[in-house]
Amino acid sequence: MRSFLLVLFICSSIVAVSSRGPIYKPPPVERLTDRFVQQSVDKAFSNLYGNKNIHQLNNGSSVNIILDKSSGSGLISKNRYYYGFFSAAIKLPASFTSGVVVAFYLSNSDMYPHNHDEIDFELLGHEKRRDWVLQTNIYGNGSTKTGREEKFYLWFDPTIESHQYSILWNNHHTVFLVDNVPVREVVHNAAIASAYPSKPMSVYATIWDASEWATHGGKYAVNYKYAPFVASLGQIEMGGCIKQRADSTQSCVTGPSTLDPVEGQEFAKLSKQQTTGMDWARRKHMFYSYCKDTSRYKVLPAECNKA
């Protein structure tokens, strides 16, 4: 009996149960978020839209962004970055959230409307309570006709407490991380070179109504009976090379440089622990990848053959 109880205790410590069955805790990984300095929201961001739905908290160290029937809301970074590490701890709305999207992303569409770059975390509300979907996407130089989406179920309830969503972007690769666990790596190689983000970008955090497409292709619209929808953000990290002037063509140089905080060898490729963590996330929690979508692409994008 004692042996049975010990086994039961060990199993219960690593397994949780959700509507999709058992969810296992991720393997241990390095904490990249410990390497960069946190900034208060008011120092890092300016209001982008929906001012009345942006509520700063704790003397500006965190913020609530809100979607209601009148408006969504959003923030934009005060600086524009060329390469870097960008992270936010986000707590998602807990109500019935179909059609709601909370996004943390990099973009330069304001500067390059016809050939912009973008690196996206999009958290998609679901028709089931608290069952959010994580979508990642990346494109460069206006390559928006090729959607590079990958979708994941989370291994935790994102509405109970904040979790860290981080982007590492440099000349070697772009990595999406959740609570420091890599869930996706886009390696900068010849196959994707023309569509790899290559120009300085701003950092955005938004909440908005995406009823037309977000939940099963628009099947479930936002139900404002459950509004307001409130997302909380804090623990902001922006360890990037800041583009000094809007009219400047100068960018961070490649190679070791104090101007670029993510150029060192420790940021050039995933460690063994990180690779193990990413393999775990993709095997157990990814349920869609554009590289597997042969109904969408008769000929898969070139980088899919390098995976």
Rank of each mutant, 00 (worst) to 15 (best):
114 H>A: 12
27 P>R: 00
203 V>M: 12
270 L>T: 10
97 T>P: 05
185 E>R: 04
11 C>R: 00
106 L>E: 09
292 K>E: 15
23 I>A: 15
62 S>H: 01
82 Y>F: 14
118 E>F: 12
220 Y>T: 02
234 G>I: 00
138 I>M: 06
277 G>Q: 04
101 V>L: 00
245 R>E: 14
58 N>K: 14
306 K>M: 12
69 K>V: 14
272 K>S: 14
268 A>V: 07
81 Y>C: 04
143 S>V: 09
286 M>W: 06
296 R>V: 00
97 T>Y: 05
1 M>G: 14
59 N>H: 15
265 Q>W: 08
18 S>N: 10
102 V>N: 04
92 L>K: 00
118 E>D: 11
232 S>T: 15
237 E>Q: 15
159 T>Q: 03
16 A>G: 15
295 S>R: 09
110 D>P: 00
111 M>K: 10
302 A>R: 07
200 P>V: 05
4 F>T: 14
4 F>G: 08
110 D>T: 08
201 M>I: 06
34 D>N: 11
237 E>T: 13
215 T>F: 10
27 P>L: 09
145 K>P: 12
302 A>T: 11
153 Y>C: 05
73 S>R: 01
276 T>M: 10
244 Q>V: 11
4 F>I: 14
299 V>R: 01
252 C>W: 06
17 V>M: 08
228 P>Y: 02
27 P>K: 00
123 L>V: 03
41 V>I: 10
275 T>I: 05
135 Q>R: 12
199 K>H: 08
247 D>A: 02
54 I>K: 10
35 R>M: 06
26 P>T: 04
59 N>G: 14
147 G>C: 01
171 N>L: 06
97 T>S: 15
178 V>A: 08
81 Y>A: 04
296 R>I: 00
55 H>F: 02
287 F>A: 08
296 R>S: 05
184 R>P: 02
299 V>W: 02
48 L>V: 01
25 K>T: 15
26 P>S: 01
210 A>S: 15
245 R>Y: 12
218 G>T: 13
231 A>S: 13
14 I>H: 07
6 L>P: 07
135 Q>W: 04
33 T>Y: 11
305 N>L: 10
86 F>I: 09
306 K>S: 12
177 L>N: 05
44 A>M: 05
87 S>T: 09
155 W>L: 00
32 L>K: 05
12 S>K: 04
271 S>G: 07
96 F>C: 00
279 D>W: 13
77 S>P: 10
81 Y>P: 01
4 F>Q: 11
